[in-house]
């Protein structure tokens, strides 16, 4: 491998800065730590925040899994894997259980994570209060003084309008009974997987230059109301491939007449389950 750039592309100076921010993020669960550092050679929207985190954490012994919408084979996932293969010679895996680092956009794997594993989330909008208060100086104060009343008002307005909380993705959570945090655009179905998870969860927003984290065994509670408790999505059918009734399903239209079926969004989980069932 010709080393015209540094291991995992990022220069050591930027890695140090990001590493210090990661430690602070772990020490203050859910708090958005600002970070500096070099720009990555990929456009925003490709997960630069996640790539910077992975580059600062990864070493030669790691096995990296990258998923996008639950799949290991989308264009975004394939480019990120190619990036770390080329710049760091990293071993790639699709198997959740054997991955040491899992970089993700949109999903948390269905297979339960273990202590020692590191999830890296690509975050487009790190500030959960942005839709209520666009000024960053204000949202910093609101987090500082736990002024979260307006967040509850916004969710309650949803209930008044739709009869339920309409948010299905990026559903806000409260971490360690303190910070309100965006879990990134995962379906709310995945929120409970964060609660007291044995794994480390790191969140990176490249454009906004923010890092935040949920350490293992930390309380992560989806915001709700006594009369409108947090509810998970449910599906009428099972996965057409593996028969699963307890995974997040994508609805797929299979022909011109609009025939529909459901398939697991987590492709690795689905293939494994289908293999176990039929072989």
């Amino acid at each position: 491998m010709p080393l015209s750039y540094n291991f995992a592309y990022l220069d050591e100076q930027s890695k140090k800065m990001i590493r210090r921010s990661i430690l602070k993020a772990l020490a203050i669960p859910g708090f958005q730590v600002p970070f500096g550092g070099r720009e990555m050679p990929l456009p925003y929207g490709w997960g630069t925040g996640g790539i910077q985190l992975t580059a600062a954490v990864i070493g030669p012994d790691d096995r990296l899994k990258v998923i996008d919408q639950g799949s290991d084979d989308t264009v975004n996932a394939i480019s990120i894997k190619a990036f770390f293969k080329k710049t760091a010679g990293i071993a790639i895996t699709e198997e959740t259980r054997s991955a040491t680092i899992i970089q993700t956009r949109h999903r948390i794997p269905e297979t339960p994570l273990q202590n020692g594993q590191i999830m890296v989330f690509q975050v487009p909008i790190p500030e959960p209060l942005q839709f209520i208060e666009p000024k960053k100086s204000q949202t910093a104060k609101m987090h500082g003084f736990e002024e979260y009343g307006s967040m509850h008002v916004k969710l309650y307005e949803d209930i008044a309008k739709f009869g339920r909380i309409a948010t299905a993705f990026d559903y806000p959570v409260q971490v360690h009974q303190r910070y309100i945090m965006s879990p990134s655009p995962i379906p709310k179905y995945d929120n409970p997987k964060l609660h007291r998870s044995p794994a480390v969860h790191l969140f990176g927003a490249g454009r906004e230059k923010r890092i935040y984290a949920v350490p293992p065994y930390t309380d992560v509670v989806s915001l709700d109301f006594e009369d409108y408790p947090f509810e998970l999505e449910k599906w009428d059918g099972a996965c057409a491939v593996c028969g699963s009734t307890d995974s997040f399903l994508d609805e797929i239209i299979t022909d011109d007449t609009g025939t529909r079926m459901f398939i697991c969004s987590d492709t690795e989980y689905c293939q494994k389950k289908a293999g176990n069932t039929f072989s």
């Binding site: 050591e12 430690l23 030669p60 480390v200 293992p216």
Partner: peptide, 19 residues
């Protein structure tokens, strides 16, 4: 090796701070 030694040390420190 600045690159690989500091990565290995940081990784243990990350897991220590997380646990």
């Amino acid at each position: 090796s600045e690159v690989f030694d500091s990565q290995a040390v940081f990784r243990s420190l990350l897991l220590a701070m997380a646990n």
